[in-house]
Design a protein around this nucleic acid. Structure first.
Lengths: 180, 180
DNA sequence: CTGTAATTTCAGAATATTCTGAAATATAAG
DNA sequence: CTTATATTTCAGAATATTCTGAAATTACAG
């Protein structure tokens, strides 16, 4: 993918911007976008040249992407350069990102809430309102993580079916639906 | 909530850090945390004093939170100062954040993909692989937004039931489950 | 109106993040 | 081992974001 068309550029730039909102650096997300639309694995030099970024930036960003589990290294015999590729399956890609975000954001928050609620229960001075609020958050996170574990193994088609069920459940059984 | 205990501080600081990963500034997220654990609505001066941040920062951050729909203004008769509060319901809070993120991140991406795929179809030069990849992304986003619309109105208890169904579906019907 | 309190705006300071390029290190063929 | 090439490290530059404080604006009681 040495020559980028305007469509390639558009996609890569947008993906780069979006990546920053998902905790991935712009360069990292751009590299991911490039690998995603590249038919074959690319080496670091090719990536740096194609995206006009420093070779070292590629190295660091690849490491970042690998820490997310989004990129893996390919060794081609007769080629000393490492090559990199990303998964084709979008659903798997999404799951990998979700797992990473859970690990980095949700899990530490759950720990923090446990610690806070634990302390507040010990102190027993009657900070009732704070305790209520933190326990409500705890319950939410418990439900959310439980939910995530129940569903993260579903294939995309199963997930579609589950959405269908939700709509059906809401309509046919007149389950409680929040306004709007 | 003028005097913060160490538990309050711990929660507020953690929430502030997490907020930055969700596209909300540290100050904004800290204000949100403070309002969340405050039994009553607070005015801007109280917030600034409690969190040791500039009065103008409170003003801007409140505006940011209001753009998310996370904070609303309360007018108390006989008090010229605006007071602010946030919703108690965690589930609603989560939904509000999800709506905001969808609006800011998913919707523009869907548009970008439409534009790219549209152009690539017109050009018809045979960039088959890129087209395939972008269409795969499109399909994923279509499923995801459809799913979100189907389920965003569910109450937390319905959602719990849905998770139960998912587990049941996976086990009892031996639906396809991806490895790991 | 007038005066005072409240709020907002905004330019620049402070901070945080990302990126570069040169130097150091690692890898492997000969 | 030696030499070529490939990769990583890292200090500081470049960039982006957030925050502050003073000035401008708004709101409203008297």
């Amino acid at each position: 993918m040495p020559e980028l068309t305007s469509i390639h550029k558009k996609f890569i730039h947008h993906w780069g911007e979006m990546g920053t909102r998902w905790g991935i650096s712009r360069s990292g997300a751009q590299i991911h976008a490039l690998l995603y639309i590249s038919p074959g694995a690319l080496n670091a030099e090719e990536i740096a040249a194609t995206l006009s970024i420093a070779r070292s930036n590629v190295s660091n960003s690849i490491k970042e992407l690998q820490s997310w589990g989004l990129v893996k290294t390919i060794h081609v015999i007769g080629d000393r350069k490492d090559r990199f590729e990303t998964m084709e399956d979008v659903w798997e890609m999404f799951r990998v990102v979700m797992d990473g975000r859970k690990r980095r954001e949700v899990d530490p928050t759950v720990i923090m809430l446990e610690e806070c609620v634990g302390e507040i229960r010990k102190s027993a001075d009657g900070d009732r309102y704070t305790r209520e609020r933190l326990e409500a958050l705890q319950e939410f996170f418990a439900t959310a993580t439980d939910w995530y574990e129940q569903t993260r193994g579903l294939s995309i088609s199963s997930f579609r079916k589950l959405a269908g069920m939700a709509g059906w459940v809401m309509k046919a059984l007149k389950f409680d639906r929040k306004k709007a």
